[in-house]
Design a protein around this nucleic acid. Sequence first.
DNA 1: CGCATATTCAACCGATTGGTTGACGATTGC
DNA 2: GCAATCGTCAACCAATCGGTTGAATATGCG
Lengths: 113, 113
Amino acid sequence: MDADLDTVFAALADPTRRTILTMLLEDDMAVTDVAEPFEMSLAAISKHLTVLTRAGLISQERRGRVKWCKLQPDALKNASVWMQGFGQFEPVNLDAFERFLQQELSEAPYSET
Amino acid sequence: MDADLDTVFAALADPTRRTILTMLLEDDMAVTDVAEPFEMSLAAISKHLTVLTRAGLISQERRGRVKWCKLQPDALKNASVWMQGFGQFEPVNLDAFERFLQQELSEAPYSET
DNA sequence: CGCATATTCAACCGATTGGTTGACGATTGC
DNA sequence: GCAATCGTCAACCAATCGGTTGAATATGCG
């Protein structure tokens, strides 16, 4: 039915891809630069970027031999709206965000998984 | 860690599971009743329900021989909050979001424990 | 007790996922 | 022109996913 939600949620279900999205919040990046901090091949990152592109979460524009990746946060809207259908929390809740930050940050950054 | 986000987003990436969640918005349901409208085996639905349970999106309580499924929408909070961070990265709370970014990025492999 | 109901388990299947490597096409710069 | 850089493609691999079927385990009921 809603293949859109399928692909968006599936794209978000991978930590590497979520990290890439947060990296792109800072600025647009070339594929090679996106790949740099990760301990995996460029080809693997390239695949992740196609997944994100197909989900509409980023766009890729080639300029010369460099392909620039740009965040497209609007793609999250449908998914966000879908989740808000469950109505147990306010649509835009910065307080919840702050609490989430506290919780995230209070966890040991380097604890073994 | 956000293995939480992994499992929640992965659970949401399936249309059958999303439909089940919306069904449970109406009311708690027994496993058999959840399965009834779907054109797949009860065992398949049972598996979907375990996925949802492991993601914390529902809880299952056995009463007699019937296992009741109950929506747990709070599990969506972290995921929703994570997504909303992308929707509004211009507002005042950029500081908090920056700290969130640091946390996320510090989980990239190059920080190897 | 004996049978129906409710649900899960176990084994299996094909498709997809996330990763690798090596070759390849395009583009840039000396 | 040629070599280096950027990125993808193709083939492969192991693991996971979403589904099936059939047997197994509780539990409730007459």
